[in-house]
Nucleic acid binder design. Structure first.
Lengths: 114, 114
DNA sequence: ACTTTATATCACTATATAGCGATATAGCAA
DNA sequence: TTGCTATATCGCTATATAGTGATATAAAGT
């Protein structure tokens, strides 16, 4: 008994989970955080410097990324060390950047190496 | 002269473009639209039925996907036919689903085949 | 012309969240 | 204890957007 026309391939609950993941990647500051963490783990102060936004804001964005399972944190004395916990991030950003590169060739110089 | 510590890998403008793309994928209704279009092109009425939301809402979501370069539309008489215009969508969703599958094995049955 | 159908757009409300300053908490040192 | 530093959380405002109903536009038929 084949499913009629493949309707409802994914239940709504799954779609919301997936959307939630993509949403975590939909903010420039969070992408900047991930970009900084791609060079290696960093504490919050370093990430505040890397992003140029306020500490409270960085803390909130980090919690979003953490809840989405994209980064992990550990305490080291006073510092909270952050690191990318899911290598799929790299693939996702590579695909997205490739798309932009193809469509905006004139801007692609800035995307080189990402 | 190596760039010091690889700082500012991506300019803010690029980050905003990338974030904008991910944002297009961050809504369940839009994912449902893309999921429906993965089976082949459909007109707006069919997509309204597939999503179960209002026609005005579907039209707005379609324009978001279109602006993000993920779907293309063409007129065919009264109908507007929609189709996925960027195969990278498939890769992105596959990667995201694989993440969810790994983390929620008990729910993975519902994700099979996506 | 008028009618019907399909889609797009407008006006509005409600909700989510980015950003900020202030405060709270946690960990270490004196 | 007190003080200092690092991070998290609270309270708030402003903006963005999802959803809806009504209206506008477009295309085809009568």
């Amino acid at each position: 008994m084949p499913k009629k026309d493949q309707a409802k391939q994914l239940p709504d609950a799954a779609l919301e989970l997936i959307a939630h993941r993509f949403r975590a990647l939909s903010e420039p500051v969070r992408l900047k955080l991930l970009s900084a963490l791609m060079q290696g783990e960093k504490n919050v102060t370093q990430l505040v410097e890397a992003t140029g936004t306020g500490q409270a804001n960085v803390s909130k964005h980090l919690s979003v990324l953490k809840q989405a399972g994209m980064i992990a944190t550990r305490r080291d004395g006073l510092a909270t060390i952050c690191a990318i916990s899911d290598p799929a991030i790299f693939q996702l950003c590579e695909i997205m950047c490739a798309k932009l590169k193809a469509e905006h060739d004139e801007r692609s110089k800035h995307l080189a190496g990402f």
